[in-house]
Each structure stands twice: as structure tokens, then as C-alpha cells.
Amino acid sequence: MSNRFLLASTSAGWPPPVLDPGGPYAEPVTLLAWALLIGGAVVLAIVVAALGTALFGSKRLKAKLGGERAIWLGGFLFPAVVLTGLLIWGLSLTSSLSPQPGTDAMRVRIIGEMWWWRVHYLDARGQEALRDANELHIPVGRPVLLELESADVIHSFWIPRLAGKMDMIPGRTNKLLIEADRPGVYKGQCAEYCGGPHALMGFVVVAHSAKDFERWRAARRPADGGGGPGLDLFLASGCAACHTIRGTAANGLAGPDLTHVGSRQTLGAGILPNNPGTMAGWIADSQAIKPGNRMPAYHQFSGRELRALAAYLRGLE
């Protein structure tokens, strides 16, 4: 339950997520990043030393620096050697991190929308098995192949602790492999400017142990129909025009699937904790929270109605 409050609980600034890998598709990049950062600092120190010598050095040292030979050594030979090594490292790493055909990975299709994410879990044959939004649950220790698409403009999918980013481009399906080593919550955010509230388009990956994942998976059943007044309000107020709740008459496709909205970590695509209060606030006036998002404000509900609706949605676990 504690990870429900992830927004504030991850108050750590250090280590930065890029340098704090959570799985095998991020770890080699972290190693590379450290090598580059340290190597870069060393080269900068060398240049500063050379510059310092040129300005304040002894006659003998200055004479060594002051000629075409020094330019060839420092400006050509040294970078040529270092960069050849780096290039070989970079190229082989690129290829080893790129999805190869025929991996035994769990498949999930994620579709970027302005300004949220559709999540379709696929079975082994690529058929859609389960729909969700703004949150991805994965088992630890198993690679997950993400098929990234876009429904409108270009977005970019980025969970820094699990892998580098990959764009979601209309008309294309890009593939990205992620894998988590340990159970936990991994946050991410849209990295390609997509207009409006691009800054508020977050995402959450929850990694479970294999057993917990099966339990989580098994609990994904359509709503049981016991909606009561909350469901009636939902259907009567037009919510169903955009949202689907499986097991009910609500089958709208424009907005996130709400079948399991109550069990999500966040609301508003990774930006708010999910509790009855934020649920009510989001329903009544999401425009105040995430300006420009596609859901209008619903001021017409009475207090009781709003609570009933929020309670109903919160109950959709």
C-alpha cells in the first residue's frame, strides 16, 4: 500500500534514475554513462591543463605545446584512438539492447495519446488479453517487449530506470525491451513534446515478483455489475461516451479504460495519488489540475453524487 503514495515517497534526488538502473536494459547504459562522465571529466581536465600550461606554463612546456605536432597529437591522434574504442563499445551495445526477433518476452502494446497512455497486454499470439491505462504491471526477471504506437502526435516512452526512451510515432510500431530486476515502482514521463500539458504526462511501471504478478493478473476481472448509484450516475452523465468499464454498458473508447481504475497507483496519468479525494477532484474539475486535457470539467454533480461516483470508481479494483 505504501507505494500508493509514490509521488512524495520517492523524494530521493540521488542517485538520479539514469544512474540507478533497475534492470538489464538500463544497467549497461549506466555503466556507459559513468564511463563517459568520468572520461569526459578527465579529458576536460587535460584540456584545462593544456590551456593552463599554454597561459602560465614554463618556457619548455610551452614550446612543446606550441606547434603543429601538439595539434596533431591532441586534436587528432588522441581523439581518434579514444573515439574508436568508444564507437566500438557504443555500436555493439546498441545492437545488444535492440529487440531481436524471437525473444521470449511478455508483450504489451502501449499507445500514446494526448496526454495519457493506453496499455494493452497481449498474449503469446499477439491478441489483446487485457486493457488498462497509464500503468504497466510486469513480473520481475522477465523481459517485456513493448510495442509503442501513437494515436495522435509523437510521444516518447521513457522509464529511465528500466531503459532508454523510444518514440511513439503515428503510423509506426517501435519496439522497446524493458525488464525489472526487483519488485517496485518505476516512474516515467513522456519525453517528446506533445503540446498542452506535456509536462503532466506521467507513467508508472509496477514490477511484481512472479507470484504476485500472477495474483495481480488473476484479479483483473470485469466489474461485477454491483455498481449501484455510482454506476447509474456514470452511465447517466455521459461518462460512458468516452470511458469503458468492462462488465457494464460503458464502452466509450476516447478516454482511458476504467475497468480497474481503483487499483491504479495514480490518477491523471502519473500525476496525482489515487484516493477518493483526488478521484472526486479529478471528476469535478480535471481542467484545474491538468489544463488542456481532453476531459471537460463536471461541475453539475451534487456533493453526494460526486462522492458516489468517486466511491464507485475507487471500488473498481
Partner: peptide
Amino acid sequence: LGIGALAILWQGLPALLA
């Protein structure tokens, strides 16, 4: 020609490594 050759050599590496 020297700089060009180095760049050409690098340019060819991805065909072998990536």
C-alpha cells in the same frame, strides 16, 4: 585525405558491429 580516411573507416564499422 587522412581525416577522410579515418571518418570512412568509422563509417564502415556499423555494418560489422551494429
